[in-house]
Amino acid sequence: MAENKAASRYAKSIIDLAIERNALEEVRQDMVSFAQVLENSSELGAILRNPIVPLDKKWGILENVFSGKVHEITRSFMQLLVNKGRSAILPDTATSFVAQYNALKGIVTADVTSATALTPANRAEIEAIVKQQTGAKQVFVNEKVSEKLIGGFILKVGDRQFDASILSGLNKLKKEFAQGVA
C-alpha cells in the first residue's frame, strides 16, 4: 500500500510538472507506452523490481529501450527513480499517472461484456448513458464478447457494475426457487 501511495504522489508531481512545462500530452503518451512495454515484457518489470540488479544496469536498460523516444521530463523522472532505488514503483507510477490524467480530463473507461458484439448504435447509447451518469467528457468503451451471458450485457464503470444479462436473471430466478422450495 505504501508503494501505491508513493507511486500516486510521484504521478501527481509529474502531472504538475508536465502541465507547468506544457508537455502533458507528450508525457501521457510516454506513460502509456511505458505501461505497454511493461505489459509485453515481463522481464523488464522483473529487472525493475529486483533489488540485486545494480542501479546503473537498470538505468542502462531503460536508457537503451527509451532513449530518444520519450520526453525529457519522462526520461529525467525515470532516471531519478532508478537512482533513488525506487525503480520497482515505476510501473505503478505509470498506471497512476494515466488514471490521474483521465480524471483530470474527464475521461472514463466503460468495460462492456455482452453476449454478441455491440452495434455502433449500442456503443453510442452506452457512451451517452455513461456520460450522463458520471459527468464524463469522454468515454472509452472496452468491449468483450462472452456467449455464456446468453443475452444482454454487463457494464462496469470504475467500481460500479450494472448487470443486465440473461445469465444473471436466470441465476437470480434459480436462487428464488431454491429458497421457496426449502
Rank of each mutant, 00 (worst) to 15 (best):
G152P: 07
A46L: 08
M78G: 15
I154W: 00
H71P: 08
D16R: 07
G158N: 07
L149K: 00
N64V: 03
K156V: 07
L17V: 04
Q29H: 02
Q100L: 12
V27K: 06
A99D: 14
A115M: 11
I73Q: 04
L118G: 04
I129A: 15
S42Y: 11
S87K: 05
Q138D: 10
E43T: 04
I150W: 01
V27F: 08
V82M: 07
G180N: 15
A18G: 04
S42P: 03
E43K: 15
E72L: 13
E125D: 15
K131H: 02
T116L: 13
S67E: 11
L118I: 07
F153H: 08
A46Y: 08
V32S: 06
F153D: 05
L17H: 00
K144L: 13
Q161T: 14
K69F: 09
E3V: 09
P120S: 09
G60V: 09
N171A: 14
V53K: 06
A6H: 12
K175C: 04
A35P: 11
S33E: 14
A94C: 08
T134P: 10
T119I: 04
R123E: 13
A99K: 14
K137D: 09
E63D: 12
G152D: 01
F66P: 02
F153L: 13
A110M: 13
G151L: 11
P51Q: 03
M1D: 14
S165K: 02
K172G: 08
A110T: 03
T93N: 03
K69Q: 06
K5D: 09
T134I: 04
V157M: 04
F177Y: 12
L81A: 08
L81W: 02
I52F: 09
A178F: 04
E3L: 11
I61F: 05
A6Q: 08
S13T: 12
A46Q: 12
Q79C: 09
K137I: 06
N4E: 15
S41V: 05
Y101R: 09
Q138K: 15
A46V: 06
T95C: 03
A103E: 11
V98R: 06
V112M: 01
K175T: 13
K137E: 12
L90I: 14
N40I: 02
K172Q: 08
I14Q: 01
A103K: 10
S67Q: 07
L149E: 00
K131L: 12
K84H: 12
I61E: 10
F97T: 02
A178V: 11
N142R: 11
V141M: 04
E39W: 03
K148P: 01
N40V: 13
I129Y: 14
L104G: 08
S146V: 08
H71C: 13
G68Y: 02
S41Q: 07
G152L: 00
L55F: 07
R21T: 11
E127S: 13
F153R: 04
T116D: 12
Q133I: 06
Q36P: 01
S41A: 12
Q29K: 14
T119A: 04
A99G: 14
I14G: 00
R75C: 02
T116V: 15
V53A: 05
K156G: 04
G158C: 08
S87N: 09
S41M: 05
G45R: 05
F77D: 02
A11I: 02
A124I: 02
G169K: 00
P54N: 15
K69D: 01
A18D: 11
E143Y: 12
S67D: 12
L170I: 01
D56G: 01
L44A: 09
A23M: 07
P120I: 03
L17F: 01
L55T: 15
